[in-house]
C-alpha cells in the first residue's frame, strides 16, 4: 500500500510537469500576456525599453523555444514563492486566490454534503423496486435534473426568491448575491449560510441527478449478482442482505466517483458563482480571463489540475481499500 502511494506520488510529479507545461503554452497562446500588459498599462506600452524588460523578467519570449524557456522562468518563480504579480493592478496573486479557494471549497463541500445523501438515497429507493412507479419517478427526475442547466436554475431562483418574493411579501426571502451583505465585516457563519443556500441548490440539482443514477445502476448490478442470491439463500434477514452485502458492494464505485467529484469542485462551480456573485474560484477565473491576466490564471490552473490529480490518487486508494480484489503493487 505504502509502496503504491509513493510510486503514484512519484508519478504525479512528472505528470504535473507535463500538464503544467501544456497549460502554460495554452494560456500563453490564449491570453497573450504581453498584449494584456500593454492594454492594462497604456503608458508603459509606448516605451519599448520597458516592454522589453517586462518580457525579460517574465520570460515572455516568442516561439516554441521561447515558451520552453519561459516555462522554466515561471516554474522557478512559482516554486520559490516569487510569483509574478497580476497584470491588472500589479498585485500579488496569492492573497486573493486563497480567499477565492476557501470560499469555493466552502460552497462545494456544503453542496456535496447536501447532494450525496439525497442522491444516494434516491438511487437506493429506486433500485429497490426496479420498474415500479418510484423507479420511473426517480429516473425521470434525474433526467429533468440533467436538463436544468445551472445558469437557468440560478436566474429563475434569483428572480423568484429575490425579486418576485419582495414584490409579493415586501422583502426578498433569500439573499441572491455575494457572500455577505455589502459592507459586512468579519466572519458570521449563519449569515454566510443564508447567502449560500441558493448557490448550493443550483449546484446540487445536477449532482443529485447524477448520484441518484449512478447509485441506482450500481445497486441494481449488485442486486442481480450471484453472490446476492447466495446471501438470500442463507436465510438471513433481508435487511442484512441489503446492508451487509448489497450496499457494501454497491458503494465501491460510488466512493470512487465521489472522490473524483470532490477533486473537481475547485474549478467546477463557475456558473453558480458567477450568477450569484459568489467570490470564489469561478469569479476569480472569469475576471482574470477577461483581463487576459496570465499571472493570475496560471496558479489558478495549477491548483485545479493538482486537485484533480490528487483526488484521482485518493479515488484509487479508496477503491483498493474497499475492494480486496484490487492489488496495489
Amino acid at each position: 500500500m505504502l509502496r503504491f502511494i509513493v510510486r503514484r506520488l512519484l508519478w504525479a510529479i512528472p505528470t504535473l510537469f507535463i500538464v503544467t507545461f501544456v497549460v502554460y503554452c495554452a494560456l500563453r497562446l490564449a491570453t497573450n500576456p504581453l498584449a494584456s500588459y500593454a492594454r492594462a498599462n497604456p503608458r508603459v506600452a509606448k516605451d519599448p525599453e520597458k516592454m522589453a524588460q517586462y518580457v525579460e523578467t517574465n520570460g515572455l519570449w516568442p516561439g516554441f523555444s521561447g515558451y520552453v524557456r519561459g516555462y522554466f522562468v515561471w516554474l522557478k518563480g512559482f516554486v520559490t514563492g516569487n510569483w509574478q504579480v497580476s497584470i491588472k493592478g500589479s498585485r500579488p496573486v496569492w492573497p486573493n486566490l486563497k480567499i477565492a479557494l476557501v470560499n469555493t471549497i466552502r460552497l462545494g463541500l456544503l453542496a456535496v454534503m447536501v447532494s450525496i445523501p439525497i442522491g444516494l438515497s434516491l438511487g437506493i429507493f429506486a433500485a429497490l423496486k426496479p420498474g415500479r412507479l418510484r423507479d420511473t419517478a426517480v429516473n425521470t427526475g434525474a433526467i429533468i435534473g440533467f436538463s436544468v442547466q445551472p445558469f437557468i436554475s440560478a436566474i429563475i431562483l434569483q428572480l423568484f426568491f429575490g425579486v418576485q418574493w419582495a414584490k409579493w411579501f415586501g422583502e426578498p426571502l433569500l439573499p441572491t448575491s455575494g457572500l455577505y451583505p455589502p459592507g459586512h465585516q468579519g466572519f458570521d457563519p449563519v449569515l454566510m449560510l443564508k447567502y449560500m443556500i441558493l448557490p448550493v441548490i443550483v449546484v446540487s440539482i445536477q449532482s443529485i441527478a447524477s448520484y441518484s443514477r449512478y447509485m441506482r445502476a450500481s445497486l441494481l448490478d449488485v442486486l442481480n449478482s450471484d453472490y446476492l442470491r447466495t446471501a438470500r439463500s442463507k436465510g438471513i434477514s433481508e435487511r442484512r442482505v441489503l446492508v451487509k452485502h448489497a450496499l457494501r458492494n454497491a458503494m465501491i464505485p460510488i466512493v470512487t466517483l465521489a472522490a473524483l467529484d470532490i477533486g473537481a469542485i475547485v474549478g467546477g462551480l463557475i456558473i453558480s458563482e458567477a450568477v450569484f456573485d459568489y467570490p470564489g474560484m469561478g469569479v476569480f477565473f472569469l475576471n482574470a480571463q477577461s483581463n487576459g491576466d496570465f499571472p493570475e490564471l496560471m496558479p489558478w490552473m495549477v491548483i485545479i489540475t493538482s486537485s484533480v490529480i490528487l483526488f484521482n490518487l485518493l479515488a484509487d486508494l479508496a477503491y483498493a481499500w474497499l475492494d480486496p480484489r484490487i492489488r496495489l503493487d
Partner: peptide, 9 residues
Amino acid sequence: DPPADLHHD
C-alpha cells in the same frame, strides 16, 4: 452518461 440501467438477469 451514467451506465445504462442494468436490471437484467
